[in-house]
Computed example of a mutant assay.
Amino acid sequence: MNGRDGSASVIRVVLADDQELVRSGFAMILNAQPDIEVVGEAADGAAALQAVRRSEPDVVLLDIRMPGMDGIEAAKIVCAQTRCRVIMLTTFDQDDYVYDALYAGASGFLLKDVRRDDLVHAVRVVAAGESLLAPTVTRRLISDLTRDRPREGRPPSERLAVLTARELETLKLLGRGLSNAEIATAMVVSEHTVKTHVSNVLTKLGLRDRVQAVIAAYEAHLIRPG
């Protein structure tokens, strides 16, 4: 990653929102950071895809509701065809489309009225390969949106056979929305060991991040909604 001055370790970001004031406000905040550079802006999903392909950013912020191609469709393509990580932008904290966005491969979501520091933190966290949702948000979100949302293509129980007993236990705890520190306490192991288990779970099940691991735990019926 190279920034405006040619230095390494600068996070490249594309912003996509049909509201120009939102885009310009977010761009001003992010460009003020020494380690973040906004390399593209777009007002709809199709333009966002073009910006991602042209600029090859590390992170793209996609508004869920945009004219033409919406953020969810754009997220599916970005996650399937690029290494760019996706943060969804939404107006409501229980938006009906949030689950679809996460299922498409997004690493999390932000409310548009997010605080300045939280916006910057979110971009850094997702660029580092982590998921964005706090454990409490994960528990509420996945529980609410999977309770009455049966989906086709749930992973068969045989798929979980590739996991060791400790990895399966880790997946169950991820499904409950526990942080690494909370999982370490529950399993009586170090956080380093938990990170290893989480990494193994993601790799073996072909998941992008721990948000998708939470979804997988629910869809495999390891955790009951509620």
Rank of each mutant, 00 (worst) to 15 (best):
P156Q: 06
R210S: 14
R140G: 10
P150V: 06
D148T: 10
L15A: 12
Y103T: 12
R85T: 01
E169F: 00
V126Y: 02
A42L: 07
D209W: 00
V189K: 06
E219V: 03
R4Q: 15
D118Y: 01
T196C: 08
V126C: 04
R4T: 15
P225R: 05
P67L: 03
F109N: 01
A27W: 04
R154A: 14
R124T: 10
T91Q: 11
V198T: 12
A161P: 02
L49K: 02
A213L: 09
I223H: 04
T196V: 14
R147P: 09
N31C: 12
A220I: 06
D58E: 11
R116I: 14
G6F: 03
V52A: 04
P34C: 07
V214F: 04
A186L: 06
V125S: 10
P34W: 01
M66K: 02
D35K: 03
G3L: 03
R159V: 13
R140F: 13
G226Q: 11
A48V: 07
D93E: 14
R151S: 13
Q50T: 13
K204A: 13
K112T: 13
V125P: 06
N200H: 12
T138Q: 15
V39L: 08
I223P: 00
E167K: 00
K172F: 08
E219K: 03
G108Q: 01
L141V: 13
A16R: 04
Q81L: 10
L202I: 05
V52P: 04
D96I: 05
H221Y: 09
A161T: 11
Y97H: 13
A122F: 05
S7Y: 00
E152V: 09
E73Q: 12
G45L: 03
F92I: 09
V125Q: 12
L102D: 03
S131T: 12
V86H: 01
E41H: 01
